[in-house]
Amino acid sequence: MSTLPVTSLLHSVQFQRKSKHRTTSLALFALIVVSFYIFFIARPSLNLAPIALRPDSRSRTDARVHVEDKEPSPPSSRLFRFPPKSPNNVVRPQIKLDESQELAAVAAFVAALPQNTIPHSIDPTQPIDPQLVLDFDTRNPRAEDEVKQIVEEVWSRYPVMLFAKLHHGNSREIRTMFSNMNLRPSPAMFNVDQREDADVLIPLLHRVTSSTELPLLLIGGKPVGSMADIRELHASGELAKMVTDAGGVIDGAKKKKGH
C-alpha cells in the first residue's frame, strides 16, 4: 500500500521534466526562427545609411599633410612619405625639369643622405625621372611649386658645392681655398669618384652643367668654370664676392666658434 504513492510521485516528476524540456526546446526553436527572420529577411528593409565622415575631418587631415610637405631642410630627404592621392584618382602628367632644376634636384638628393645614389639603370644622357630624386608626388597639382622650393632651399643651404675627385691636385687646391675662407654654411663637397654611382652621376653632372671635367664647383647653383677660371677669380677676389652674393658668410664659421 505504501509503494503506490511513491511510484505515482516518480511518474509525476518525470512527466514534469519532459514537459519542461519540450517547452525549452520550443522556445529555443522559436528564438532561432525569429533571429533568422530579422537578420536574413527583414534586414534589407532597414535602410541603414552609411556613417559619413564629419566635413571638417578631411580638411584637418589635408592640413596636416600640407604642414609635413613644408618640413625644413635638408631638401629631398628621400625619407619617403606617401603623398596624398589626387582627388577622384585623376592621373596627372609627369612634370618636366629643365637642366637647372634637374641639377638642383640631383644636388639635393645627393646631399640629403649619404646612401642616396643614382640608379645604374638610368641613361645619364637623358633627363632623369623626377620621381627618382624628389620626395613628393611629381604628378600632383603643386609639383611645380614644390620643385621651385627645392631649387631655392638647396642653394640656400649649400651656396658652395663641390663635386671633386679624392686624389686629385685641382680638387685639393679648391678645398684649400674654401677651407681658408671659413665659410658658413660649410661647403658641401663630394668625392664623386668614390661613389657607387660614379659612372652615372659624373656624365649626368656634365650634361646638366655643360662641364667637361672634374672638379666641378657650383656657387649659388651655377658652375664657376674651369680650374683656370677658378684660380683667376680667386686671385682677383671675385670668387669671394660670388660666395657672399650666393649667401655664404666668409669667416662665419670662425666667428661662430668664437661665441
Rank of each mutant, 00 (worst) to 15 (best):
E173D: 10
A143C: 10
H167Q: 13
V192L: 15
A143F: 04
R175D: 10
N182M: 10
L214R: 04
P187V: 03
F163P: 04
N191A: 13
P124C: 11
P119L: 05
E144K: 15
L217M: 12
L205S: 00
D137I: 05
D197M: 08
V154H: 00
L218M: 12
N170Y: 06
R184K: 09
T138E: 09
E153L: 15
F163I: 05
L162F: 09
V133A: 09
T212W: 08
I174Y: 01
Y158T: 04
E213L: 10
F178T: 03
A164T: 12
R157P: 00
L132G: 13
D197E: 07
N170T: 10
T125F: 13
N140Y: 02
S179E: 14
D129N: 15
R139H: 13
H120K: 14
I202L: 09
L205I: 04
T176K: 11
V133H: 03
L218Y: 02
D123V: 10
V151S: 04
D145R: 11
E173P: 03
E152Q: 14
I118A: 07
R207G: 06
T209Q: 05
I174M: 10
I174S: 01
R207E: 02
A198Q: 14
L183H: 01
S156P: 00
V200E: 02
F136Q: 04
E144M: 10
R142D: 14
E173V: 05
P203M: 04
D193W: 01
Q131I: 11
D199M: 11
T125Y: 14
V151K: 04
F190P: 00
F136N: 11
P119V: 08
T212D: 15
D129I: 12
F178W: 03
I118Y: 04
Q126Y: 07
T117Q: 15
W155M: 04
R207I: 05
N140K: 11
N180D: 06
V208G: 00
L166W: 05
M181L: 11
L214H: 06
T125S: 15
I202F: 04
S186D: 02
I118W: 01
D193M: 10
Q126D: 11
P187F: 05
A188P: 01
N170Q: 14
